[in-house]
């Protein structure tokens, strides 16, 4: 069976005026189904650029990217949208919930584009919210939730479709230590219990420590790639 993620000599080149910015420079990477990977590296090293390509939000300028055996480098926008909807969940640093829309409706959103019936959307979104410990908050608006809670809604939205891949670009970047730990525990559990592949970008060592594998990026290339010693013992998710 092929790996979940296969990057071969991936380049991403931005043109800004006459200038050429090489954000990714021949990066190659393989990630298996079920892994929990932390991507680290200094600012501007190309982490977000890579995450966008892995998440099918963007396509490489050169090189090949295969997700679940599907060549994503030459798909059309709507086909990419379909893949994102079916296989990928996103968690962003800035939560990116839709304002003035309840937690439940935010969590429903991917199912909405799957064309499920309203009833199915509701049940599955409510279940996803329960999994991140937000039962009872279904009808809260984002402004009525703390940062940590908003990020948990975002995680519920990401996992509601049971994706094979969850991408989190600095998910704890806007959170305090305690909320960060809660988020990480949820992600850890999703990885352990459901086998969801998680790729996480972070600048913090103790966050990266939750992952089993650590990849360091520098100047758009893989600088180092190794398994970490171990993971903290999981503790129950707080409400």
């Amino acid at each position: 069976m092929s790996a979940l993620i296969q990057c071969e000599d991936v380049w991403k080149i931005y043109r800004v005026g006459d200038m050429e910015v090489q954000a990714l420079r021949g990066l190659s990477l393989t990630i298996e189904q079920g892994e929990f990977v932390a991507i680290m590296g200094s600012s501007g090293s190309g982490k977000s650029t890579l995450m966008n390509i892995l998440g099918c939000l963007d396509q490489p300028t050169k090189g090949r990217y295969r997700l679940n055996g599907i060549e994503a480098s030459n798909l059309k926008p709507d086909q990419l949208a379909g893949i994102r909807n079916q296989q990928i969940g996103f968690v962003f640093q800035s939560f990116n919930l839709i304002p003035r829309t309840s937690a439940l409706e935010n969590a429903q959103l991917p199912l909405f584009y799957r064309g499920l019936s309203l009833k199915e959307q509701r049940t599955q979104a409510a279940a996803a919210l329960r999994r991140v410990g937000l039962q009872g908050r279904e009808h809260h608006y984002p402004t009525q939730l703390s940062g940590g809670q908003q990020q948990r809604v975002a995680i519920a939205r990401a996992l509601v479709t049971s994706p094979s891949l969850l991408l989190a670009d600095e998910p704890t970047g806007n959170l305090d230590t305690q909320s960060s730990q809660e988020i990480m525990r949820i992600l850890d559990q999703l990885n352990r219990d459901e086998g969801i592949t998680i790729i996480l970008v972070t600048h913090e060592v103790d966050i990266a420590a939750y992952a089993a594998r650590e990849i360091v990026i520098k100047d758009g290339q893989v600088l180092s790639d190794h398994l970490t010693k171990g993971r903290p013992t999981p503790s129950p998710v707080g409400g």
């Binding site: 949208a81 994102r84 909807n85 919930l97 839709i98 584009y113 939205r157």
Partner: peptide, 16 residues
Amino acid sequence: TREIGVRMAVGAKRRH
């Protein structure tokens, strides 16, 4: 704009 971006990220196609 951001909302549109979110919708696209979770799988909204152009026609949506």
